[in-house]
């Protein structure tokens, strides 16, 4: 069988239009605004004094190993830190140079996105956004690919590299077990200044707006996490612009899964439809060839018969 140029182009265009139909269907999906009544935590940096009691409480509730420097040693604040497998939350200090006022603290931990990038990148479904609002991790199914660490726009998940047999991806769980028991997350319970507020995400946004409108000269008019990456369950308000306190402002408002949904949505189409399509084209071609062969055979036979007739008359 030989494929002509025209035939090949025909197939390609047919396949292309088929996959296009599927991608447009995905592009028009509705924007997910999080589970209704999901919980969140508001971090009000205006109250934070950088005492690290949240870090201590987090360490205790997650049964992590004790750090090299004790929690009341505030010299660790001199360096900018990231979350690690042994510190699921860290507080960083930023000097308020402009107005020569007291420094601003920012607490980092998993932001518990409404549509988590880690969950969409994970191909074994180890991450799950619960209806309570937290993003939880199931180590029993994790294969250790660490795609979640690459996918996270906030660079939060960490890996237990020093655990030879059962390494886990480590990140804040918003104390999901405690929330289900109607208790406060450990860091919120520990904060002596009320810089961390736990509640329904909608109520927190309302409260944050009230704070900003009540003290316009003490907060910038921005609730970080309300829209970032499609919205997160952890929200922040601060007196300094967030880009000055080490938070990314260039993330946009599109949730990470939405960016990949189009391409990933095409996979089943390619895997299933293409085979059907190609098999169909092959079958049609085979039938054509068969028909052509039969015709040829008949023609030869007919020609043979005619020849016989001619010879008979001779």
């Amino acid at each position: 069988m030989s494929i002509s140029r025209r035939k090949f182009l025909g197939w390609v265009s047919a396949a292309g239009s088929a996959s296009l139909i599927s991608t447009t269907a995905h592009g028009a999906r509705k924007h997910f605004k999080g589970y209704p009544d999901c919980y969140g935590i508001l971090y009000d940096s205006g109250f934070c004094i950088g005492c690290r009691q949240c870090e201590e409480a987090c360490n205790a509730v997650n049964k992590l190993s004790a750090p090299v420097k004790p929690f009341d040693d505030l010299s660790v604040l001199n360096q900018k830190r990231r979350t690690t497998a042994k510190a699921l939350t860290v507080v960083n200090r930023y000097e308020n140079k402009k107005e020569n006022k007291s420094p601003v603290f920012i607490k980092l931990q998993c932001n518990h996105c409404l549509e988590p990038a880690c969950a969409s990148a994970c191909f074994v479904k180890a991450f799950k956004k619960t209806k309570e609002g937290s993003v939880v991790y199931d180590p029993s199914v994790c294969v250790g690919c660490r795609y979640c660490m690459i996918a996270c726009p906030f660079e939060i998940p960490a890996y237990e590299y020093d655990e030879p047999y059962t390494p886990r991806v480590m990140k804040c769980t918003m104390c999901h077990d405690l929330i289900k028991e109607n208790k406060l997350p450990a860091c919120v319970e520990a904060c002596p200044m009320g810089a961390l507020k736990f509640g329904k995400r909608n109520a927190l946004i309302k409260y944050a707006r009230e704070r900003i409108s009540k003290f316009p000269d003490r907060y910038i008019d921005h609730i970080y996490g309300e829209h970032e990456m499609g919205g997160t369950s952890w929200l922040y308000i601060s007196s300094l612009p967030f880009k000055d306190v080490g938070m990314r402002e260039d993330l946009g408002i599109t949730p990470a899964p939405e960016l990949t949904a189009g391409a990933l949505g095409a996979v089943p189409v390619v895997a299933s439809l293409w085979t059907v399509l190609l098999t169909g084209i092959y079958a049609i071609n085979r039938r054509k060839e068969k028909l052509a062969e039969r015709e040829k055979k008949e023609a030869v036979e007919a020609a043979g018969r005619d020849k016989k007739k001619v010879s008979l008359y001779e």
């Binding site: 004094i49 919120v188 200044m193 009320g194 409260y207």
Partner: peptide, 22 residues
């Protein structure tokens, strides 16, 4: 107890700290 029911009214522990430190 800082029960978190009323966002604008913190618990006693937090109230003391906010008032003094603030």
């Amino acid at each position: 107890l800082s029960d978190g029911q009323d966002l604008s009214r913190p618990g006693l522990n937090i109230a003391y700290h906010q008032q003094c430190i603030g």
